[in-house]
Nucleic acid binder design. Sequence first.
RNA 1: GGUCCCGUAGUGCAGCGGCCAAGCAUACCUCCCUGUCAAGGAGGAGAUCGCCGGUUCGAAUCCGGUCGGGACCGCCA
Length: 613
Amino acid sequence: MLGAARLHRIMPFRCLVIGRFTLKRTHNCNVLNKDDIGSTVILNGWVHRRRDHGGLIFIDLRDRYGLTQIVFNPELYPYSHEMAGDLRVEYVIAVTGLIVERPSGTINESIATGHIELLVQELQILSESKTPPFYINEQQDVDESLRLRYRYLDLRRDKQRDNIILRHRVVKFMRDFLDTAEFVEVETPILVKSTPEGARDFLVPSRLRPGQFYALPQSPQQMKQLLMIAGLDRYFQIARAFRDEDPRADRVIEHTQLDIEMSFVEESDVMGLIENLYLKIVAEFSDMSVVNDGIPQLSYEDAMDRYGTDRPDLRFGLELIDLTDICSATGFRAFDETTASDGIIKAVVAPGCSGYSRKQTDVFIEEARNNGAKGAITVARYEGQYNSSLQKFIDDDVFNKIVERLRLEDGDLALIVADEVRVTNAALDGIRRKVADQLELRSPDEIAFCWIKDFPLLDKVEGQDRLTFSHNPFCGIRPGDETLLEVDPLCAKSRQYDLVCNGSEVGGGSIRITNEGLQRRIFELLGYSEDEIEHNFGSMLQAFDFGVPPHGGIAMGIDRLLMILCRTDNIREVVAFPKTQDGQDLAQAAPSAVTESQLAELHIRIVDKESGN
RNA sequence: GGUCCCGUAGUGCAGCGGCCAAGCAUACCUCCCUGUCAAGGAGGAGAUCGCCGGUUCGAAUCCGGUCGGGACCGCCA
């Protein structure tokens, strides 16, 4: 319907051959300016907007570089003008004509080419377009599934296009920076060996070895360490990492990391390198200001005490206040049971929130509940008077000690949580962030980095009498803590370091274990049998027999960094072709069923969960 | 595995038991219009309110289920 008839009608004599491309561009749509007045140029691009005055027709011509206004004048070029009447949004066209100065009073300062326009002599329609399913020339919110289905149209929009281009420029900057610092970019395999622990692996069946599977790498961890043993000295890669876990707003099943490993280094070398790189990137690619000079370092313990999380948002204070020591044997059951069972009682103060309605404070309390706490107790202060349900349950002198430590001022509201350590911290971390949101303390124009160090090497597996690693099984032990492994393994600290930015973990790494005996001991502590160690890590351990340089590295989440630079909370905004919350690619409709013969070749049979057939 | 939110012309929203065979904006189509730049003016077409079932005299509206998308918990070394 669309085109043919209409085109033939208006072009009876001139032969329009779709696909024959004669007007090849001489400039892009963002470069022409006053200097070009008087020259004849050719532009190619998409019709961004049209303004048809009946007489004059104005078209904003768009390519990825920008916009140029082109004009069709019926008196000067009646043929082209008539043809232009049929142009619609998103048609792809080629035009040739003269660059002219815009009449005074019609200059558009908001675009780079706003002082000139192209007076079209000849128009060639390269491709027509249906009316797009959503606006491309307006930044209106559109249903995300629709955008993903038509991702090629979505990416025509300014914001999306800019995000993708910024991503390219940041990655290019990383490559150049590391190349200058003698790093070698090495590609590691995408089909690797599945290893236990960590996230769930994506598996790829082997055709040649029935019943066996490759895994997609969760990170190139072992490979990069082998490259150090190989003597590469400094390695990096823009690496894909795959984890078959449920996505979130800031988490996808395939993400990209800047993967780095260095030999003959200790913590400060790796951290210094990243610090240098990241501060440069922020300076180069954003107009956000870095809150602290350089990047402060916090111990894991400090972070947990003061913020209740190992990824604190340091754009604002609101530090947690520990009340445990003054809240034992108060006669108030919630407190006494908590202290009796080694729990803790902590608080956060929301400045100026004492006048909040029940509904408003409930938002904070609900946040505590979402994180597993039973609730939160409020203490409000107005005009020197305190208002709290606590007063009913505890003695005045204890209450006075509490408010003294909380240092409330008039108008402040404190929220107190009593529970086991993990829960109290999680609840108050949540409340702290909610309060900051409410008070708009999380400035979109600020960047607050920090390093977290001195993580525990090992962790208890929740609900089991078993240990797991808190970073990865190759993470080094803080010098001197080796003997703790035999006495009190949970107290041993690691040589891990995480980079946190605005409350989000943007990277992490460690100095590695390079001693075979120690590495084996770690695997044993994690509960692996001799056979399992051999089966899963044998080749790596064998490499340790042949001269291992001390080494360490880091993996930086590139998507997370881009989210910050692009000022978005949605990781899919910085990925060209992202997947949905249940792992689908709506543009391609993947995953999809495959043919019986494909399955047969892979020695795979689909079993119905219900019937078992 | 679980909790919550959303689904109404192409798009974005309103309507939340009868006044709705559904309203607004914009896009789309036709006509008018020579300096616009989110051009303007006049007119027009376009939706069985995601789907299935139930409650009711009556359902876009209430309930149950289901599908699609999102946020979160679990999970994510």
